[in-house]
Computed example of a mutant assay.
Amino acid sequence: MNLPHKVKIVEVGPRDGLQNEREIIPAAVKVALVDRLTAAGFANIEAASFVSPKWVPQMATSAEVMAGIRRRPGVLYSALAPNMQGLEAAHAAGVDEVVIFGAASEAFSQKNINCSIAESVQRFRPVALAAREMGLRLRGSISCAFGCPYQGEVSSDTVADVVGRMRDLGCDEIDIADTIGVGTPRQVQQVMARAAGAFPIAQLSGHFHDTYGQALANIYACLEIGVTTFHSSVAGLGGCPYAKGATGNVATEDVLYMLHGLGIHTGIDLGAVVDAGQFIASHLGRKAASRAGNALAASRAAAQP
């Protein structure tokens, strides 16, 4: 089976990866991380979140981070903007792309944002319209597309329905996310194929967590059916506060090691990403959750005279 020749990696570590850290990380450290990732060659970096600091204190410095990063022309710097206040703040901060988010699980939607799936998408309508008027790229993210911690199985028909609703809001790209990491390769292919019936597969992206060790296999399964955009988090940072036991996003270093081994072009310097992963892991005081990253770092250290 033919695999894509080129893949886009959306680096989500600075936002999704760090948002649930208990200790507040200085804006300067976040800026340094984004700058390292920019220099590594990412075309899209999820750098901030303009949500209420009451709910996500870690993201309270988002405007400061956006003001401090060294931007590279052609790189999309993305941020979550769940309401008009967040959108206006994101626009003022110079964000290139705003992200709105819903769920494929009614139970998760109620637990997460206290409303139904349909209501959640409807709430984003003014945000989507305003983002368009501001000339911002719009991305939709659908959580719990492969399973839910509250209701269990999630129907692929429901996923496709939410994709259609996001499409109708004018999204340029839509993320299909395995928030709790329960998906397996054949299931992932079925859900992605169903989603592709509602939105072009070239504009769908896979967002996988590695709770059950299936993330790389799921990405490979997506490659087999033509998905060419994936999310990953440097050093395997992240998790989900609404999904107990969910580990971080799949580690960027591991994804790059696999893709480069397959001869797939990413435009990203793996060595520079390893350095970025070791940098942020050192600041957090723990080992990076990336097997390839830690192995490459150890190999490099062993080669030093």
Results as ranks from 00 to 15, higher is better:
Pro4Gly: 10
Ile9Cys: 08
Ile9Ala: 12
Val12Lys: 00
Val12Met: 06
Pro26Ser: 10
Ala27Val: 08
Leu33Glu: 05
Asp35Val: 05
Pro53Val: 09
Glu64Pro: 04
Ile69Phe: 03
Gly74Glu: 00
Tyr77Gln: 02
Ala79Cys: 12
Gln85Lys: 15
Gly86Tyr: 04
Glu88Val: 02
Glu97Leu: 11
Val99Ile: 15
Asn112Gly: 09
Ala118Phe: 00
Gln122Glu: 12
Arg123Asp: 07
Glu133Asn: 14
Leu136Gly: 03
Arg137Ala: 10
Leu138Thr: 10
Ala145Tyr: 05
Gly147His: 04
Gly152His: 06
Asp157Lys: 07
Val159Cys: 03
Ala160Leu: 07
Val162Glu: 06
Gly164Trp: 12
Asp172Trp: 06
Ile174Pro: 02
Val188Asp: 04
Gln189Asn: 01
Met192Gly: 04
Ala198Ser: 13
Phe199Ile: 06
Pro200Trp: 05
Ala202Asn: 13
His209Val: 10
Asn218Gln: 04
Tyr220Gly: 01
Thr228Ile: 14
Ser233Arg: 05
Lys244Ile: 06
Ala246Arg: 06
Thr247Asp: 06
Glu253Phe: 02
Leu256Pro: 13
Gly263Pro: 14
Ile264Phe: 11
His265Leu: 11
His265Tyr: 15
Leu270Arg: 13
Ala272Leu: 05
Ala276Arg: 00
Gly277Ala: 04
Phe279Ala: 01
Phe279Val: 02
Ala289Phe: 15
Ser299Val: 14
Ser299Ala: 15
Arg300Leu: 12
Ala303Asn: 13
Pro305Val: 10
